[in-house]
Write a protein that binds this DNA or RNA. Structure first.
Lengths: 193, 193
DNA sequence: GTCTATACGCCGATAGAC
DNA sequence: GTCTATCGGCGTATAGAC
């Protein structure tokens, strides 16, 4: 397809999102200017508005994209037993979040900078993800494999615990991500058994 | 003690910190202006500088004050057994954090807005708090009461799980904070037993 | 699609009167 | 201790040339 000279829409768009993701994660949405994002990409500030109508939409697109990816990448197999499903969930959650620390950070820290409408849409996606875990716990309880007083609370407790890995784990430290995953699985398994 | 007319140092100072705490928690440090804080207090922006040398120090004082309170309020009694100490820690952590959601929110979300020196000081206080929990877990492991592969990881996992209560718990909901505490204690106890 | 230039406003912080 | 006034700078977003 013919293109006007100087046209880079197909490559600049992703680069804008990557730069915004990195800078928002490092400095926070409110503290990062459109000029700073443009400088990171290597264009002038005005050019960004070819790729997003405004800064708010740029933030929302990053968060919605992250949550959509998270839901699409889910590994749950209802044909397995509840314990195997739970173990797969723990491993998946840690691995997925470990692979994209910037997006995870933004998804948790910048919720308050979303407009009410955008906040509601992101929250709906988060609830959908939580429901996936809760259905596993509920199946385990019904099968008599798990003992959990309240599956909703256990869901939130487990997700908070697992996501917390991102706040302290650094590659090259005392433990590998696989060892950490094994230990978290051990704690989760015992907490619901 | 005689005072100049218009002098309100003893009352305005706390009100500045309260307003900053509330506004930082709601909108984020970077998005809240000194003018907005002044308006909340009912003074002009310039008057704030009688109570803090700059905005950064105001943030630091809030975070350091919160962490110092947290450490001073600790209820640990080494004379008790490890399980009783752990149960007391869980109840204390949930109660203390539940009582000051704004300070907790700021302490977690605004770390990146601290200068490197201030960040190091707040982090040292946080590590001190974590060490309190880890010593409980270590005693329990040595006494053969707890079974934990790595006390440092278990410490971080438990704190993340407990602090997570603040992100979803709302008074007047389905469960009271006491019922929630009982369920978290049940999960923590089993995770380390 | 990107550039330069700019409109318009708020930012943190300070000076000096009262 | 608080006020008013102000400095110099940076914020988002847009207009119009190329």
């Amino acid at each position: 397809m013919a293109r006007t000279a100087g046209s880079h829409s197909d490559i600049t768009g992703p680069r804008v999102r990557e730069a915004a993701l990195r800078l928002f994660a490092r400095g926070g949405y409110a503290a990062v200017s459109m000029r700073a994002i443009a400088a990171e990409v290597g264009v002038q500030a005005g050019a960004l508005y070819n790729y997003t109508p405004d800064k708010q939409t740029l933030l929302f697109d990053l968060m919605e994209g992250h949550m959509t990816e998270l839901l699409a990448a889910g590994v749950d197999d209802p044909a397995l037993g509840a314990e195997a499903r739970l173990q797969a969930f723990v491993a998946f959650h840690i691995r997925f979040h470990h692979a994209r620390p910037d997006a995870v950070f933004i998804a948790y820290m910048e919720l308050r900078n979303l407009s009410p409408e955008n906040f509601a849409r992101v929250e709906a996606l988060r609830r959908e993800y939580e429901n996936g875990l809760e259905s596993i716990l509920r199946e385990g309880v019904e099968a008599g494999i798990f003992r959990v007083a309240d599956t909703k609370i256990a869901t939130l407790a487990i997700i908070a615990m697992l996501t917390g890995v991102n706040t302290w784990f650094r590659a090259g430290g005392r433990l590998s991500i696989e060892e950490v995953t094994a230990q978290y699985w051990d704690m989760v398994r015992r907490a619901v058994s």
